[in-house]
Design a protein around this nucleic acid. Structure first.
Length: 426
RNA sequence: GGUGACGUGGGUGAGUGGCUGAAACCACCGGUUUGCUAAACCGGCGUAGUCUUUUAAGGGCUACCGGGGGUUCGAAUCCCCCCGUCACCGCCA
């Protein structure tokens, strides 16, 4: 959520930023917001004045009663009663204005940073870091992971259909073991980098879903448990970042680094068709997330450190990858700057997104009221997060890129974690 | 799920209708004292909104004592609903 003061003081820059997102209604929206805010302030002042008068009169009533001046006291009581009626009206108007303001404000997406390229969709993303060297070539007969899976049975989608529905894979035997090994490996690397590990709830309340910006923007994309009014988390970012909701930190608390492994649940409504085969797109998947709460002046540097963290994982996994800087049109609602990591799938001959690392600046913290005490009083902190990493596509890429006649070779770093050097045909 | 007790500032904890945005203590910050550290002493110390030509520091007002609603001239204090914590009972991986 953007701050009204920013819309007011920095209108031009905000508009220029939002233009990169293909958000044509920005100008009308902002004008209306500023108008509503003027209205809100004037009503607030009116109401405050009425309440001040009421308070003062009420005090008089008290002392008049003590002096035994009943009649005078009763006269003032009358007066206050009249005042109460008009104050109630003003308050109603104020509440309405605030509500309108809020409803409009939460629909404005974050302002992209200057470095974000303008653009409509993923075709306009900018390659931030190209893959070094040649992309690996597989021999004749190389198979995509869903075909390999027929021989290796790493996962089972049909079993998922039986228990739940499409897009809920089960991992089986060596596949389950690989999954468990990857989670431990990712968590070990995160904690080694100073992130504190949490095991967080997978169901969150509305305030939490709102805090990170999943509501109202992604309402239909989250699974919702109506009986208890809970949402299934689409990422560990949601519970982890909200740990600090409504907090006022000290500058010395920075940086705050959190990590956690969770399953993630996404309805992915409307995303059927091409490129959703096998593990490419599923409703439930596992992910290790890293989150940082940062001082505003440090968030961009921290963002780059987080990129290094993710890059080092992919290097150790020996997977060819590149880093994209997302264009305005591809940026998620809450993000000011996002880098995507894509791993090359040699068998599918395409890049698969495996991680997204974003700086939200004050967009989430303004919703969460996550502040710190700084030199200029209390101000909003910055929040950042990234996947380090999401499992299914990593598994897909490992399967595809490392297929040999002797099985699927696992990178060295995973040997102790998985207890296997390669996956075998079953 | 049932019954009971409770929910006050970063913490402990006073406060049952006006003089309480809230005592006291602890923590924290600044200072005095001090070989160093500690102790002692003095001072400061909530958040948010709004108004204000405050040169700057600021000042005024409003709201907030789990959340929402009500009673009253006036609510942390009384009433109702909800949420949470704890204890016991029930159920249970």
């Amino acid at each position: 959520m953007l701050q009204i003061s920013r819309l007011r003081n920095d209108r031009k820059a905000v508009l220029a930023g939002l233009a990169k997102r293909q958000f044509p209604e920005a100008e009308a929206s902002i004008d209306q917001l500023l108008q509503l805010d003027d209205q809100r302030r004037s009503l607030q002042t009116q109401l405050d004045n009425m309440l001040a008068e009421r308070n003062q009169l009420s005090k008089q009533v008290g002392s008049l009663f003590k002096q035994g001046k009943q009649e005078e006291a009763n006269a003032i009581r009358e007066q206050v009663n009249e005042l109460k009626t008009s104050a109630a009206q003003t308050e109603e108007q104020l509440t309405a204005a605030k509500q309108q303001l809020q409803d409009l404000l939460v629909k404005l997406p974050n302002v992209p940073q200057a470095s974000v390229p303008a653009g409509v969709d993923e075709a306009d993303n900018e390659v931030y870091q190209e893959h070094e060297g040649e992309l690996p070539q597989l021999g004749e007969g190389a198979k995509p992971h869903w075909e390999l899976n027929e021989e290796f049975r790493v996962f089972d989608l049909e079993l998922g259909v039986r228990t739940t529905g499409s897009g809920f894979p089960l991992f089986v035997g060596q596949g389950a073991r690989l999954q468990r090994g990857l989670i431990n490996y990712f968590l070990d690397r995160a904690t080694a980098a100073g992130y504190t590990e949490y095991v967080a709830p997978l169901l969150v309340n509305e305030a939490t879903a709102f805090g990170t910006g999943s509501l109202p923007d992604k309402e239909g994309q989250m699974y919702y448990v109506g009986a208890d009014d809970f949402y299934l988390i689409p990422t560990a970012e949601v519970p982890l970042t909200n740990i600090y909701r409504d907090q006022i930190l000290n500058e010395s608390d920075f940086p705050i680094k959190l990590t956690g492994y969770t399953p993630c649940f996404r309805r992915e409504a409307g995303s059927y068709g091409a490129h959703v085969r096998g593990l490419n797109r599923v409703h439930q998947f596992d992910k290790v997330e890293i989150v940082q709460i940062a001082h505003p002046e440090q968030s961009n540097a921290i963002h780059l450190q987080m990129l290094d963290q993710v890059a080092s994982l992919l290097k150790e996994l020996e997977l060819p990858f590149r880093i994209l800087r997302l264009c305005g049109g591809d940026l998620t609602f809450a993000s000011a700057l996002t880098y995507d990591f894509e791993v090359w799938s040699a068998a599918q001959q395409r890049w698969l997104e495996v991680s997204s690392v974003s700086n939200f600046e004050t967009f989430q913290s303004n919703r969460m009221k996550l502040r710190y005490r700084g030199e200029n009083g209390t101000q909003l902190a910055h929040t950042l997060n990234g996947s380090a990493l999401a499992l299914p596509r990593i598994i897909a890429a490992l399967m595809e890129n490392n297929q040999t006649a002797d099985g699927i070779m696992l990178p060295k770093v995973l040997h102790p974690y998985v207890g296997l050097e390669n996956l075998s045909r079953v």
